[in-house]
Simulated scan of single mutants.
Amino acid sequence: MTTIMPQSELVRKAAAYIEEHRKEYPKNLNKLLDKAGMRFNLSPKEAEMLKDFFKQSESDH
């Protein structure tokens, strides 16, 4: 049985998923973003927000 979650929780879970898998696949950020978007059923706006967040954190290092 599926559980309904608030969208903000899905975005947090998607961000955690990307962060966890980035260590394994550091060169595949775009692929991970796409996978997380599909896996957590993110809207295009949410997916873009995550992309901007991770691109910004990448440039900060």
Rank of each mutant, 00 (worst) to 15 (best):
M1T: 08
V11S: 07
A15Q: 06
L29F: 04
K31D: 13
A47H: 02
S57C: 05
K23S: 11
P44T: 15
E58H: 00
L10Y: 06
A16V: 01
L29W: 03
A36C: 13
D52M: 04
E20A: 11
L10A: 08
N30Y: 05
K55H: 11
N30L: 06
L42T: 05
L10I: 02
E58C: 00
E9H: 09
E24T: 15
E24K: 15
R39C: 14
R39K: 12
F53A: 07
A16Y: 00
D52F: 02
H61M: 09
E58S: 05
A16L: 07
E24M: 14
A16Q: 02
V11G: 09
K27Y: 02
L32A: 10
K45Y: 10
K51D: 15
S8Y: 01
N28E: 15
L50A: 09
K31V: 15
E24S: 14
T2K: 09
A14Y: 02
T3W: 10
K13T: 08
P26F: 02
K51V: 04
A36N: 11
P6H: 01
P44D: 09
K55P: 05
P26H: 09
V11M: 06
K55D: 15
P44L: 15
H61S: 12
D60L: 01
N41H: 10
M5Q: 07
